[in-house]
Nucleic acid binder design. Sequence first.
RNA 1: GCGGAUAUGGCGUAAUUGGUAGCCGCGUUAGACUUAGGAUCUAAUGGUGCAAGCCGUGGGGGUUCGAGUCCCCCUAUCCGCACCA
Length: 936
Amino acid sequence: MSDYNFQEIESRWQSYWRQQGIYKSHNGGDKPHFYVLDMFPYPSGAGLHVGHPLGYIASDIFARYKRLQGFNVLHPMGYDAYGLPAEQYAIQTGQHPAVTTEKNIARYREQLDKIGFSFDWSREVRTCDPAYYKWTQWTFIQLFNHYYDVTINKARPIADLVSQLENGSWVEGLSKPWSQMSESERQQYLMDYRLAYLADIPVNWCPQLGTVLANDEVVGGLSVRGGYPVERKLMRQWSLRISAYAQRLVDGLDDVDWTDSLKEIQRNWIGRSEGAAVLFPLAEDSSRQFEIFTTRPDTIFGVTFMVLCPEHEMIDSITTADHRREVEQYVTWAKNRSERERQAEVKKVSGVFTGAYAVNPLSGEQIPIYVSDYVLSGYGTGAIMAVPAHDSRDFAFARHFNLPIRQVVAPSLSETSDPATWAESLDSKQGIVVNSGFITGMTVKDAMRSVIAKVEELHIGHKTVNFRLRDAIFSRQRYWGEPFPVYYKDNIPYTIPEQCLPLELPAIKDFKPTSSGEPPLGHAECWAWDERNQRVVETSKIDGKTVFPLELSTMPGFAGSSGYYLRYMDAHNDSQYFGTDAVSYWQHVDLYVGGAEHGTGHLIYARFWNKFLYDIGMAVCQEPFQKLINQGMIQGRSNFVYRDKEDNNLFVSKNIEGRANRTVPIHVDINIVDNDVLDIEKFKAWRPEFKDARFELEDGKYVCGYEVEKMSKSMFNVQNPDDLVARYGADTLRLYEMFLGPVEQAKPWDTNGIEGVHRFLKKLWKLYDGANLSGQAGGDAPSKAELKVLHQTIKKITDDIERFSFNTSVSTFMVCCNELTSLKCTHRDVLQPLAVLIAPFAPHIAEEFWHAMGNETSVCDAQWPRYDESCLEEDAFAYPVSFNGKMRFSLVLPVTATAQEAEKAVLEAPEAQKWLDGKLPKKVIFVPKKIINVVI
RNA sequence: GCGGAUAUGGCGUAAUUGGUAGCCGCGUUAGACUUAGGAUCUAAUGGUGCAAGCCGUGGGGGUUCGAGUCCCCCUAUCCGCACCA
């Protein structure tokens, strides 16, 4: 009898796996393939906490399971090492990001290795590695060199557009013939079509971070990283024309196996809405008109005013002299408001009258034109027709400025009322159109169609679709990111030749961001492009003739993470992003596991990136991630001690009466608390100020309070996986993280139950330790009871894994182990398949058992056991039910029962006889495969 | 405001997908073995009742022989988006 020495076992098998290269996967072969991917981590300075491995453990279980099922499994890992978090950490610790990143990666790797993952590290990618970001830059060049052809819904080479311009078959937006345009004019024109383009656009500028941010990096006017205020600023920036793919990004959601909630998050973010664009002429000059977008063309007869956004280009020219001062004041005020102010004061109505009037093209009425910042410049055309009766924002505006409100939709033709008496607008689309000329009496839906048809007939509008999704701002005024492979000649951007990639990030001393927006790369001594010799040279050599300045911004964090899953397929390819063979073999990620917080960021960008690569013939699937599981966030569970308000050395246990009024709670390190009981000696040693602490105990113990909070150092509730691995072993940690609850559910971390899981492994150890594992199978066959336990377990575990219900799997193993122990099972034919079943969950102990049974190869290459239906037969049982005073009972039969068998069973089964007591049943109701109801 | 989810013992959770609610674990209680126990083992543990029993899956209705599960209406909590026309 030996003890379960998990430390020895785990380190032994981990080095065995490493030496044997067990987890190295190959492209190709006869086996079916399966690609399991985790969202790769930012190697932050804090190291892993117990929340990180949750998803990794789940995906590892699935990857190992698939492998045991005979699949060729790709299960890689890498690091998202470029970007803001890595750089912020470096700045805070006063070190160079290259140094901290290297250090953090080493620490992550060490922590990951201890948990026993089956990652194929030979395919590791790091986004900050030139051999990797070469391909990020390469993709950027392709984006720059392509445009989106809306007629075929696909990206095409910009050269195609140029040749259409040259032969005159494309004239859209041309101010003069292509042949007469200068190089600069041509490039400017093409810039409006390129999928990666440079433009002056209002951006989210964050002075504290010294960079612009994408929309998904800003929440409520504050930066996601650090929570600093963000301003609206007009800057010349690189952007990706992701909006061109908006429709395909919506459509693609129907083809993937994601949760409804995540699909909904993406749909909301893309924000598709159907409606109409309509031209409204000015009353003073009907040759001048402006376009509005509406989703409610049916309410066009209810328009009582128009609103332009403060940035609208026509404001200046339409404002009448007597309103000019007021309008200019308002526009200036509105433009200077910060994002945060604007969002915080959404409820406040503001705006001014321009003095100008427009004409409703269908009713001929004159309607006043206002300016207000509730109309946004970035959406639609930045101008609206206001229908106060049927839009809550227009309603609020009309009430504030005392503008008329006219009802044009009602529950029925006769059910109209005076809008002056309304408390709110009638936004519902259920109803009949009233007071509306030729559409009066129609349903809202029909009216929409009719109005669109009418404006199309009059050539003053058309049906259209609008998206909320904006193009992604792609420049960051930061150091730690991929350099743009771009240089400027006469202020026109050109990409450096592909064969010169990677354009390596120069080492510079002062990499800190500046609040003025000057990128740190401006400090680089060697950051100019020698066009003739095709190489990077000293900045001082810039002459504007052959040596030109290089782009100083770098790419954002999402650049490197948008295509990494493709690179894993062929991680060492020097000549291509990834080879055709590799991508045709693996196709796409079959299972992707990661946090839902990437729903509007990474998961949108990666889908866009992939669709573009698909368009240019690189990727073979439109959607990169087939099935996606969002692991729930692990919150912290903080512990508290209660210090007496009067006596600072006195601590009162939680449940002592009157404690609440006389104490203040103080966070206490969860590592010196066990099951909410404080280790008093450790507490005294924890900090000098508690050296002389005294306690009011309950039942001889000090009981701590707890609360669920964010996991953070300042709350002393960070649980480090290494501590748990050292104390209980990796197998226990793996099982316990799964046991905690469904993978997808958010839950507080709580170590209180880990003992139970550890106890299970010890029991399992005993079960195998007591058995004659090395002996031959022969002799007695396993008992019927033993086989039943085994096959039930196989069936349940297989089902559980298929539906990602790993918490129930752990319970199933516990039941199985308890039952086999009480059956005193020592049979190899039972214990060997069981070892394979448990291998995905607890690979170290499974490997130990497997080898103890005399197997030469790793348990990773065993075969997943199949269950035998015949071993699963359930016993019949019956229970009483009363209904309308009649005596009835229900008889539950084995799943294989048929109608005829059921009739027979009622008469024959001993369980039924007990209830019938010799009488014949009055009525037998049979529910196929399940149950028989018998009325006595 | 719009959208998505969730609600079961003291706690984390489970329920063959419409079939005896509470598996497994924690915690608690009692006992055994022990010099000792933060080790191990055994038993009990939804509420109420001496008991047979009765009541129990956030609340209220409904469908059904049968509802934690399906339908409708509330309530609470969490998450996402938010002046998106």
